[in-house]
Design a protein around this nucleic acid. Sequence first.
DNA 1: TAGGCCATCTGGTCCT
DNA 2: AGGACCAGATGGCCTA
Length: 205
Amino acid sequence: MEDIFFDFDQDAASDFTFWGQMDPNFQFQSQPDSILLDCATLTGQLSPWSSFGCQSVFPDAGLTFSDLDSQSPQLGFSAEVDSSSVDEPHEISKLRQRRLAPHHPYKVQRHAANIRERKRMLSINSAFEELRCHVPTFPYEKRLSKIDTLRLAIAYIALLREILTSGCDPKTYVDECMKNGYKNQTNAIWNTSDLTARLSWIKWD
DNA sequence: TAGGCCATCTGGTCCT
DNA sequence: AGGACCAGATGGCCTA
């Protein structure tokens, strides 16, 4: 972890309240790189940068790297800094001086690319989260992994297609599958009885 | 403790 | 040229 996003030693909380979605009971964690994710979780959105109907952490879609930089004062000084020494006042001032040091152009560019990549991955993850909401899961089931989400979605789509083409009542079709065993025509890795069992939880109104 | 899952960094490639 | 996309490497966390 080369850098962190927020200036925890001063007004980290105000950074979050600026976004206006922080749970008042939220406890900051010591792991800087988990903050973004935890923030996303707590606010009920799937990604701070996601465009899925949620307010973005960076509401300005055209946010530039320099904007990010201004929001992340520690950008540019690396993890070699021992956080245990940050308590010392003169150490803090040293850190502040290093913070202002000019960045090597390559490092700045690489850092910008890292931020874009994180943003891109967060957007992918938010799409996975959306997808998880649309595949059948058991109540209290452990969160599906990405690969399981994809495989279950494939199996689910295949089953829905079969229901459509059969012209049967969906609930009847699923009940029949439960009784007789679901003859999946795809090579879906998901256990078919597992899929139909999941479907049995669906409310067919 | 090994394996699965995941986030992040990174460099390469492609596209605009 | 710069951004998007991708895949490999790495390290952290969790669970069986």
